[in-house]
Design a protein around this nucleic acid. Structure first.
Length: 258
DNA sequence: ATGGTCGTTTGACGA
C-alpha cells in the first residue's frame, strides 16, 4: 500500500502534472493540499477515470484539501470534530482508506511570529491534537499527513539561521508537533532517513530548488502499527523539476501488507 | 543591488 501527500499549490494549475504523477507513481491513497478549489470545482471525474474515489474540503481561492483513493473511501469528514467552532479555513479532511484512518492537513503558515496568523497556527495544531484525542487512539491504524509548515528540527532546513525569529522553526510550533508525536505518531520519513538536507519544499524564488535551498515541511505521521509496516519513505524530487511545478514535492510511504 | 516567483487574480496579497 502506497500513501502519498502533495501540496500542489492550486490543483487547477497542477491537474495535468498531478494526473501524470498518479499514473507514474501509482499511489493507493494521495492526499492533496492547497487545491485552491471550491468543492463543486474539484475534478472528481479526472481521478475517477484512473480508478480513484475522492473527497474534497475546499472554499475556493485559498487552502483546500483532498483525499484520493483506489482502496476505498469511507467515513469522510471535513474539518475538525473536537466540539469547537467550525474552522474558518478548509484545512483538513478525513477518510478511511484500505482500513487506515487518513487525514490530509494543510497547517496554517503563520506568516510572522507577531502576526495573528501565527496564533491561529498554534491554535490549529492544538485543535488537531484535540481531534485525535476525541476521535482516535494511538492503537488505530492512523496516517496524518500534509503540509505542516514546520521544519521539525535543524536538519530540516538548509540553514538554521533562516528560522531564527521566524515561523516554521519556532519552539512553540515544534513543541506542538512534538506533542502530536508524544500522543502516538511517528515522523516516519525521519525514522527511515537520519541525514540532514532532505527537503520537500523549495521557494520558487532565486532558483532555490537548483541550489538545494529547501525545507522538509511536508510530513507523514503514522501510528505505531503503520510505522512497523513502513518499508520505504521517499520524497519525489523529480516532481519539483520541469515545467510549471508546485513549490512542494510529493512524499510517499510504502507499507507492507498487514 | 534588501530583490528574486508563483498562484489567486487584474491590485494586492498569500506563501
Amino acid at each position: 500500500m502506497r500513501i502519498a501527500t502533495w501540496n500542489v499549490n492550486s490543483l487547477n494549475a497542477r491537474l495535468e502534472r498531478a494526473i501524470e504523477w498518479v499514473g507514474l507513481l501509482q499511489p493507493d491513497v494521495l492526499c492533496l493540499q492547497e487545491t485552491k478549489l471550491a468543492d463543486d470545482a474539484f475534478p472528481h471525474e479526472a481521478f475517477a477515470a484512473l480508478g480513484y474515489e475522492s473527497v474534497h474540503n475546499g472554499e475556493g481561492r485559498w487552502n483546500g484539501v483532498a483525499i484520493v483513493s483506489r482502496v476505498g473511501l469511507s467515513d469522510t469528514r471535513p474539518g475538525f470534530a473536537d466540539g469547537g467552532a467550525p474552522d474558518p479555513d478548509a484545512r483538513i479532511v478525513w477518510a478511511t482508506c484500505g482500513g487506515i484512518r487518513v487525514a490530509s492537513c494543510y497547517v496554517p503558515n503563520g506568516r510572522t511570529l507577531d502576526d495573528d496568523h501565527y496564533q491561529y497556527k498554534l491554535a490549529w495544531l492544538d485543535r488537531l491534537h484535540a481531534d485525535l484525542d476525541t476521535n482516535a487512539t494511538p492503537a488505530d491504524d492512523l496516517c496524518v499527513v500534509g503540509d505542516f509548515n514546520i521544519a521539525p528540527d535543524d536538519r530540516d532546513v538548509y540553514d538554521p539561521k533562516v528560522l531564527v525569529g521566524a515561523t516554521h522553526g519556532s519552539q512553540a510550533e515544534r513543541d506542538r508537533l512534538a506533542a502530536l508525536l508524544d500522543w502516538g505518531l511517528d515522523d516516519v520519513f525521519r525514522d527511515h532517513h537520519e541525514e540532514a538536507g532532505l527537503y520537500t519544499w523549495w521557494d520558487y524564488r532565486g532558483g532555490n530548488f537548483h541550489k538545494r535551498l529547501g525545507m522538509r515541511i511536508d510530513l507523514i505521521l503514522t501510528s505505531a502499527s503503520l510505522t512497523a509496516r513502513s518499508e520505504r519513505v521517499l520524497c519525489d524530487r523529480n516532481a519539483r523539476k520541469g515545467k510549471d511545478p508546485s513549490d512542494h514535492a510529493p512524499v510517499l510511504l510504502d507499507l507492507s501488507a498487514s
